[in-house]
Write a protein that binds this DNA or RNA. Structure first.
Lengths: 212, 212
DNA sequence: TAGATTGTTAATCGATTAACAATC
DNA sequence: TAGATTGTTAATCGATTAACAATC
């Protein structure tokens, strides 16, 4: 994953969504039309040089003396990240996490549309979740292939995660966000990222001192 | 956050929970007593040299020729990460995400115990969530200080996130995992990490090609 | 114009890897 | 013993930062 595709470091790609998010907030605040690398960096705790360097991988988006036109830069970042389309996305697993994801408003306008949700528990199949009907995971492969869906969110127990991953990969999924606290094996060309809250929290406790 | 405390790079700290998780899985599989940096690296897609180097910041935990005793290394990592205690944790926000977190089993045995959950919506206050009663956010400061809680999970809308953060910081919280898609300002000595699924997904779409 | 800020280069800094002596 | 694997050093590689000419 430090892999360099297009010659652009993955760590740079990783910062672009952060820039995009902050710029979107700026645009919503609506109190200015342009910003500078310095201002953006201040918000994010990133040096202005790094922001300019990162952007320079993709072109020239600013004006000397003025900075960046916020809306224009948003547009450009969305284009770079392939977000000027909506990615149909499936959720696998309709437990508490799947349920929360199905109701999450944050996908809208950020490039993703939750299209389907699957589970294998007969007691939840057929249930409505925010307008989607929970489908049996047996239908997954067929649906995915028919609809050409490339993005999936995995919200199943760790014990099922690898099997479902294999299923997804077979069905043509190219990018998986996994909530299962386990490392997944996928072939080259398939991207996985992990969302394990405990890993994040454990990373912080190192710096804490017990006061008790 | 690239800050070097104790002289140990934060990026190294960030990998320790990943090692810990994989080792715990190995221990659960129970088919062997020791592992090697090579085997662990294979599982995680990390070089064996990096694993050995990372561990060497903290001491010598292996034996030449044999590798690492899995349970012993788990114990040591837990100690390094301050996980040989349970951190009392509060959840702020009892919406879909807070609800899912309250029911998440993954905190157990990994260093955290969800102790309280707060919201400001009268219609959810008093509700039971997996054994916890949702409390009004007005009680937050007093409870936190009385109980000396240092760890919080933020699951409120972006619009409320900074205000609640200020409240938490005032009440002595030192580490926050935020689900709000917004950058938070905190004073030095307070740690924040973010869990925005969309940011993770946007990072992957860069590598995708639309097939439609 | 003067001030501000970009994009870029070169220097610095830090992280990863390769290699190997030590040794179980 | 021979084979395996550690911990560590030095070399390599890559990322960040400082500085500044260009220019809006």
């Amino acid at each position: 994953m430090p892999a360099v595709e297009n010659g652009i470091p993955d760590i740079v790609i990783g910062r672009l969504p952060i820039y995009l998010r902050a710029l979107t907030h700026m645009a919503q605040e609506g109190d200015k039309v342009t910003t500078s690398s310095h201002e953006l960096g201040q918000r994010l705790g990133i040096s202005s040089a790094q922001i300019r360097k990162d952007l320079s991988h993709f072109g020239e988006f600013g004006k000397q003396g003025t900075g960046y036109h916020i809306k224009y830069l948003i547009e450009q970042l969305r284009h770079i990240l392939n977000l000027d389309q909506e990615w149909s996305t499936v959720i696998v697993g309709a437990g508490y996490i799947g349920h929360a994801l199905a109701h999450y408003q944050g996908f809208q306008h950020r490039g993703f549309r939750i299209q389907r949700i699957f589970d294998n528990d007969p007691s939840v199949i057929g249930q409505d979740m925010n307008g989607l009907t929970v489908q049996h995971v047996d239908e997954l492969s067929e649906v995915m292939e028919n609809e050409g869906i490339q993005v999936a969110i995995l919200a199943v127990p760790a014990s099922a995660a690898q099997d479902i991953t294999d299923l997804l990969v077979d069905a043509g999924v190219k990018s998986i966000l996994s909530y299962a606290p386990i490392n997944l094996n996928v072939p080259q060309g398939v991207w996985v990222r992990y969302n394990d809250p405990v890993v994040q929290m454990q990373r912080m406790t190192f710096y804490l001192k017990s006061e008790e």
